[in-house]
């Protein structure tokens, strides 16, 4: 499934946090290469550094040292505005707790990144409806986020993450708030996304999700144990 030239390249990432007067080493030299079409699961116990790794490769936090490249662009070299633009157009984020804007409908939540990217109203409405249909929520487009179930909210969040056709979809415990049956629906959706060509990097405790991924990275104490 991999092609030449990584979509995402992380090299020797170190991340230290000051905590109660001491330094916590969240990542201790992590390197990662993800190619187009990969489905990567990052697994490990709590505190192993997997979420920190996802934040660094997603450009929402900065490493103490090391570098991250998305499609050949080094994130450290970007100004805040450029990094924001890169997150908007190249990356898609899915959170454990969905984090939809409650005052907006499902369609409006999906439209938000497209509006920010400058897409015209008609075009983004059409694409939002198309994406919601893709995740199985064609009939719920005009419901507010608060009127949706947990599984439905996560589907909307996935549609939102796909809005600007990102190079990589980053998900942090996407089934963590869902029951087993609903979690399975999300796994099925991820499998379908990957089969349709979406590159996925998923942080998870869920063994089923890890088993679905084509590649599993095990982390412990800020290091990669196995890939």
């Amino acid at each position: 499934m991999s092609e030449a030239g990584p979509v995402l390249l992380a090299t020797a990432l170190l991340k230290d946090y000051p905590m109660n007067g001491e330094t916590v080493h969240a990542l201790r030299g992590v390197s990662l290469r993800v190619h187009r079409g990969d489905y990567v699961a990052i697994a490990g116990p709590s505190g192993s550094g997997k979420s920190t790794l996802l934040q660094l490769i997603g450009g929402i936090d900065t490493p103490s040292s090391g570098s991250v490249e998305i499609l050949g662009t080094r994130l450290e070299s970007l100004k805040d505005r450029e990094l924001t633009r890169l997150r908007l157009t190249r990356l898609g984020f899915i959170f454990q707790r969905f984090h939809l804007l409650p005052v907006l409908t499902a369609r409006e939540n999906v439209e938000l990144p497209m509006a920010e990217a400058g897409l015209g109203g008609a075009e983004r409405r059409a694409r939002a409806r198309e994406l919601l249909a893709y995740v199985g929520l064609g009939g719920r487009a005009d419901h507010r986020a608060t009127q949706l179930s947990g599984g439905e909210m996560q589907r909307v969040a996935i549609a939102r993450a796909l809005a600007n056709r990102p190079a990589v979809l980053l998900a942090d415990e996407p089934t963590g708030e869902l029951d087993a049956a609903t979690g399975q629906e999300i796994l099925d959706l991820f499998r379908r996304l990957n089969a349709d060509g979406t590159t996925l990097v998923v942080v998870t405790h869920d063994q089923r999700l890890a088993a679905e991924a084509g590649r599993v990275i095990h982390m412990l104490d800020g290091r990669i144990l196995g890939d």
């Binding site: 997603g58 924001t84 908007l88 959170f95 984090h99 804007l101 990144p113 920010e116 600007n164």
Partner: peptide, 16 residues
């Protein structure tokens, strides 16, 4: 705060 953080993560500008 959380909404603003998520909006920033998904690429929404400060100005917006």
């Amino acid at each position: 705060r959380m909404d603003a953080a998520v909006m920033r993560f998904v690429g929404v500008r400060r100005r917006t």
